[in-house]
């Protein structure tokens, strides 16, 4: 299970590409699909790499995306995650 994930409100997106450019683990990419206003919202291409750091949310000028950390279900017994 990845450490985090992003939630995207596609209808607010204006396709500026800030989240795609500045994602530290390069999780996002602008999709070829359109939203109602004709912009290309981002989607996740490397979902397993997402750390949930919310840097995409900090950069998004339209409050359309934000990252969150997945809750840890059970404590890991081994040292390897």
């Amino acid at each position: 299970m990845p450490k985090g994930s992003v939630a995207i409100t596609t209808e607010r997106c204006k396709g500026c590409g800030f989240c795609v450019e500045f994602c530290p683990t390069h999780v996002l990419e602008l999709s070829s699909a359109f939203n109602a206003k004709g912009y290309h919202p981002p989607h996740m291409i490397n979902a397993e790499k997402c750390s949930g750091c919310n840097l995409c949310g900090m950069y998004c000028p339209d409050f359309a995306i934000f990252g969150y950390r997945n809750p840890v279900d059970k404590p890991q017994k081994g040292t390897h995650s």
């Binding site: 204006k14 500026c16 800030f18 912009y39 950069y59 998004c60 000028p61 339209d62 409050f63």
Partner: peptide, 8 residues
């Protein structure tokens, strides 16, 4: 506008 930094 798309690409404006004020929202950031």
């Amino acid at each position: 506008c798309p690409g404006c930094g004020i929202g950031t």
